[in-house]
């Protein structure tokens, strides 16, 4: 419980600084401030997705759609269905997807305007819609295809770990709504947080590790099978989503 309180006060720090902190708030968050003064990223947000608990219910996709009024046809977060095998040796699992808020985000160095950047204070990768020109270079560079052009603004858009919520000490909307507690969110820098413990103790994996992006979304029990790696001749592997573009790329 104590650990939770620390986390929240740190989150308050980030939120309140943005809004002009009151004196009282500034006093409460002193430890966080001292940590920031060390020059490190004070908060390191990450998500753990326990694919074994995911039922593919899409509540997270819907919550995300609602949270951001994401236009039809584009998605900040979605769930993939992975089916493989031949009866009776079959499996079907679910792979929730979102921006990995990478530590080495390939989308950032390609952005010609500086609209996409990684926040120093918490590691979230964001797009400044006022600056972005919609050149789509970042969409090519991201190895996870999580970016899209928001048809309303014409600018690049993607998951931002619900920045407006987490800076207020709330969990991202998808985490909040997940009925199976398959999504867990927190601060990796805080050794007492649930995410830090899971990452330390569970055999976690990340997507496309070979890209060198160092993702901050970790999976437990994810099936990394893809249509392109069918090895057994005639083996059936099918990956499906509700996105208009069905293929992973």
């Amino acid at each position: 419980m104590k650990a939770t309180a620390t986390t929240i006060s740190r989150r308050d720090l980030v939120g309140n600084i943005g809004k002009g902190a009151t004196l009282a708030a500034a006093v409460t968050v002193l430890p966080g401030k001292a940590k920031a003064a060390l020059g490190n990223q004070s908060v390191h947000y990450a998500m753990v997705i326990d694919a074994r608990k995911c039922t593919g219910c899409h509540a997270c996709s819907v919550a995300c759609k609602t949270e951001f009024e994401v236009p039809l046809g584009v998605h900040r977060s979605w769930v993939e269905y992975v089916e493989k095998g031949t009866y009776p040796d079959v499996s079907r699992s679910f792979l929730p997807r979102l921006c990995n808020q990478c530590d080495v985000p390939l989308c950032v160095p390609v952005c010609p305007t500086g609209a996409t950047y990684k926040r120093k204070e918490d590691g979230i990768v964001v797009v400044d819609a006022d600056i972005c020109i919609g050149c789509k270079y970042c969409m090519q560079a991201c190895p996870y295809d999580v970016r899209f052009i928001n048809p309303n603004t014409g600018t690049a858009d993607k998951c931002d770990f619900c920045l407006h919520r987490v800076t207020q000490g709330l969990e991202p909307s998808c985490v909040n709504t997940c009925q199976g507690r398959a999504r867990i969110f927190g601060d990796l820098n805080d050794p007492d947080s649930e995410v830090a413990k899971l990452v330390a103790t569970e055999p976690v994996t990340v997507l496309r590790q070979e890209m060198g992006t160092k993702p901050n979304v970790f999976y437990i029990g994810a099936d990394h099978a893809d249509e392109s790696d069918t090895r057994v001749p005639g083996q059936y592997i099918r990956v499906d989503t509700h996105r208009p573009v069905l293929e992973r790329r």
């Binding site: 952005c111 010609p112 305007t113 500086g114 609209a115 600056i131 972005c132 020109i133 919609g134 050149c135 789509k136 052009i149 928001n150 048809p151 309303n152 603004t153 014409g154 600018t155 690049a156």
Partner: peptide, 27 residues
């Protein structure tokens, strides 16, 4: 450019010239 396409779709003149942002910086 996404902003140009949005400008056409929404008739928003301001978005037409957003590519200027390319020349407000260099990286």
């Amino acid at each position: 450019l996404g902003t140009f396409q949005a400008a056409v779709a929404q008739g928003d003149i301001g978005l037409f010239f957003k590519w200027i942002n390319l020349f407000l910086t260099i990286n």
